[in-house]
Design a protein around this nucleic acid. Structure first.
Lengths: 124, 124
DNA sequence: CTAAATGCTCACATCGATGTCAGGGGCAAG
DNA sequence: CTTGCCCCTGACATCGATGTGAGCATTTAG
């Protein structure tokens, strides 16, 4: 498939797909005229990239984690593992932060509701 | 306290504190010479702002949520409530995304570990 | 009093993923 | 052949929170 279809299937803009490739997160075989061609497999790859980027993993970090699978070397694998675990810790921290924020928000919502209820009861 | 102390207590840079004020997220009383002065109370406020900003709530959205508590009006409260609930949904979505990413990462880590183990067992 | 530390404002820089526009091919159907 | 749609590269723009630096004022410690 060409870039338009991959874009449609993944929701990533063409621009983003080219960017992923530029960053080494995605490969494409080129037709003689230079057009990118992808296989079904790549749909999953793009989804993975999207998930990590959305999770705040930078493309630079991602490139150190994921592509090691393409050209496996023991050293690279060890280094990738270290980075992955580091990133995993960051993710967990972020999750905790978000959950805390949501709790705080729930608190504000509660307060607001209480205020409105009181107000509705005709209180000044 | 002046801005330096508030900064030290919250971990927010002086720059950020001025920015929060500029955005209407923080108030300060000014000394005759124009220096900002804060009360202990404000430490908590800053922490709240930090938590929400870190959670990806924009200062614009935040200003519609939080300061309604300062000048409570029924209409504002209702509108704020709507925004809060909307933002809560977004937060929950984000959390789900992060958790999914972490799961994917765990998968990659697992694969990597398996590879290293096989490698250590002397396999080609 | 003086020097050091702190504060003020204004303005420009940064980062990363993406949007967008321009100028130029490529390819299929009418 | 032409029309329409997709693709290419390259470059500049965007957003939001924060960093940074200049130039100047104020407060505090010695």
């Amino acid at each position: 498939m060409r870039i338009g279809e991959l874009s449609a299937r993944t929701g990533a803009s063409r621009r983003s797909l080219r960017y992923y490739e530029e960053q080494g997160l995605l490969v494409s075989s080129r037709s003689p005229s230079g057009q990118r061609h992808y296989k079904d497999e790549h749909v999953q790859r793009v989804r993975l990239v999207q998930a990590f980027l959305a999770a705040g993993v930078s493309s630079g970090t991602l490139v150190e984690m994921v592509p090691c699978m393409a050209e496996p070397s023991e050293d690279r694998a060890r280094q990738a593992l270290e980075i992955m675990e580091c990133e995993r810790a960051r993710l967990s921290e972020d999750i905790d932060g978000l959950v805390a924020a949501r709790d705080a928000l729930d608190h504000l919502i509660e307060d607001n509701r209480a205020y409105l209820t009181r107000s509705a009861d005709g209180e000044v």
